[in-house]
Design a protein around this nucleic acid. Structure first.
Lengths: 146, 146
DNA sequence: TATTGTTATACTCTATAACTATA
DNA sequence: TATAGTTATAGAGTATAACAATA
């Protein structure tokens, strides 16, 4: 019986993971190195900065994060004075989370870095290939949800 | 001053991470669910199965893994009877790692699953887009090494 | 009964440093 | 001095379950 020919270097989950790690590591310098934030904290900040007030559950759904991680990230951002909680009249179990002015300043600075980094990645690939990459990744993510 | 317009849903590191997590989670069922292996153990098994005897340092370089993780994965595979160490005459600090027949059987089974899963992903995307994706990811990984 | 959010627990992963044996 | 590999430690990520408050 012939050997199964498996090409690890062309295995999509492996390539995806290596590329995600390489890009993530490079950008982590922006939030981890400069602000001492974790990735989950950066994602919470990014969602609140981008979309305004959200509940923790909404952040979990949009960011594909666990509620435990979000709970701890919210706590850390709150202690830092970057985030406030407001009671929701319509459901007293949930809270509306939003950024303080200081939190919004941090978001603005990090969003600007993110835009620069995204542009750097896209320039490395060429705009056409980068746009195609984003489209294919989105398709993969969508397909996995089913 | 205008707000910085940052589109989190188009941010490449974010898309790469979501896609890698989705694909990785789906394939992890093969090695974690069925064999109780960690991802690092699967990667060590895959490299030894694919390339034959390697030293730990060579696995680290090829698989982009930390030497501590590889050291522990090698230990676990050894205890399981899937891997043996052989002294290297030319450098007694290093060891040649290779799979036992049982280890090779496990590799064959997992490699076959990997081939099936890769084919599934490629069929979801279409062969042309999948080939393009692999090429662009390889370029990204290569660019990040510099 | 179900859901929001917190806390506890455990395992994996990542990263660093200290250490040994050898080069 | 430098390298191969092990061990220890700590922080971060992932996953589950138990729990309180509210719906």
């Amino acid at each position: 019986m012939a050997e199964t020919q498996f090409d690890l270097e062309g295995f999509l989950p492996y390539l995806l993971n290596q590329a995600a790690e390489a890009a993530g590591r490079e950008f982590a310098a922006a939030y981890r190195g400069r602000y001492g934030m974790t990735r989950t904290q950066w994602r919470v900040l990014a969602h609140l900065g981008r979309f305004g007030a959200l509940t923790a559950t909404e952040i979990c759904r949009r960011a594909m994060e666990e509620k435990t991680g979000v709970s701890r990230a919210v706590q850390a951002l709150e202690e830092r004075g970057w985030l406030v909680r407001d009671a929701l009249a319509e459901d007293r179990r949930a809270e509306a989370l939003s950024l303080t002015p200081a939190g919004h300043d941090a978001y603005q600075a990090l969003a600007a870095e993110a835009i620069r980094f995204d542009a750097l990645l896209r320039s490395r690939l060429g705009e056409e290939r980068a746009a195609g990459l984003a489209e294919v990744l989105t398709a993969l993510i969508g397909a996995a949800r089913d």
